[in-house]
Write a protein that binds this DNA or RNA. Structure first.
Lengths: 185, 185
DNA sequence: TCGGATCTGTCGTTTATCCGACAAAGGGAC
DNA sequence: GTCCCTTTGTCGGATAAACGACAGATCCGA
């Protein structure tokens, strides 16, 4: 398909680094994690880290994207339309994701994390929209994806701010009818 | 000390293989584990396996030695005399080890496993005996270590055969007085 | 403000690992 | 028995990862 088969050593090393990052994130704050720490935990050489990532912020970005990607189970959404069911699943996935993140002390990087989540959502929404519209409206689809990603993300912020009194699926269902009527036009 | 520092890749790869072996041992019998299975689980190339081990029996041997070594906490015994406390600890360690092994379905390789355990015990007893005797009696010490390793191992076989009605520490304590009186001469 | 220490990125060289292919040996199914 | 398929070891050539050294950045206590 896409791939000219990436070297297994690369996949393995990336996984080792990611796992080490997750592990260390549980022990100390992001700002206190050094590349040396990471590579020691991952059992790889420091130079090898720079072979795969620009710096530790690049790692943060890619690691979060990957975790979020798995949480969102992107394959499941590919080819689906953005119906109520999909939106509920996406919303609960990212609220779960953020809840698990808040245990991990990434204070001071909320902005970065938020951006990563929105970018990931945007990609997924764009792919979903592609299945029901033709590609000539590309710019419009992209814009819609942007709006949806910000909207859903914002809803998750508000949900957390509301002290999580309502289950996320109930919370998002309130807004969905309005969204859906617009999307079908 | 000893080392001209083995390459970290070697240590990492060995660990990956060992872990994969432990993992697979829980799922299927030893005879059904292929090198291909192992290397897939370990995320390494099949050729790399043969770089580290002669074949899968070689792996069995080294993996068991390592697990047993950890169980026996060899560092703890180094420099100790073979007193009652040490013997009880060793005996309970290997009975624990074998109990955990019996969950892992290595049927058909009891002989190999038994040999590995005895060899490991022999090394440990020899080191312990060295601390109280001088090296001129080397052959005698070695012979004593052999006897002790077979004796303790045999006791563990009998203990398991007795349906484990008595706690291992009580079981071995029955025999120890006779051993000790002999050892001190 | 200075100095020591640690961390960061980068480089050229060496080495462990990957790949793909190979012959040989086993193990079912028929 | 004969096929077919999988596993086993082994090889030479390609490549990712390790090493150790380096200059510059950053931090922190004196």
């Amino acid at each position: 398909m896409t791939s000219s088969k990436t070297d297994p050593r690369v996949l393995r090393t990336r996984k080792l680094i990611m796992d080490a990052f997750i592990e260390l994130s549980g022990k100390k704050e992001f700002k206190d994690i050094t590349v040396k720490d990471l590579t020691a935990e991952a059992m790889i050489n420091r130079a090898t880290f720079y072979y795969h990532f620009e710096d530790i912020y690049d790692l943060l970005e890619k690691a979060l994207s990957e975790v979020l990607f798995v949480n969102l189970d992107s394959h499941w959404f590919k080819g689906k339309e953005p119906d109520e069911d999909s939106l509920v699943r996406i919303f609960t996935a990212i609220t779960n994701f953020q809840t698990s993140l808040s245990n991990r002390c990434h204070r001071g990087y909320e902005d970065t994390i938020a951006r990563i989540i929105r970018e990931q959502l945007q990609v997924i929404f764009y792919q979903m929209l592609l299945t029901q519209k033709n590609t000539e409206e590309d710019a419009a689809l992209n814009m819609t994806a942007v709006l949806l990603s910000w909207g859903i993300y914002g809803a998750s912020v508000e949900w957390r701010r509301s002290a999580r009194e309502v289950p996320p699926e109930d919370y998002i269902k309130l807004a969905i009818p309005y969204l859906m009527s617009g999307l079908k036009s």
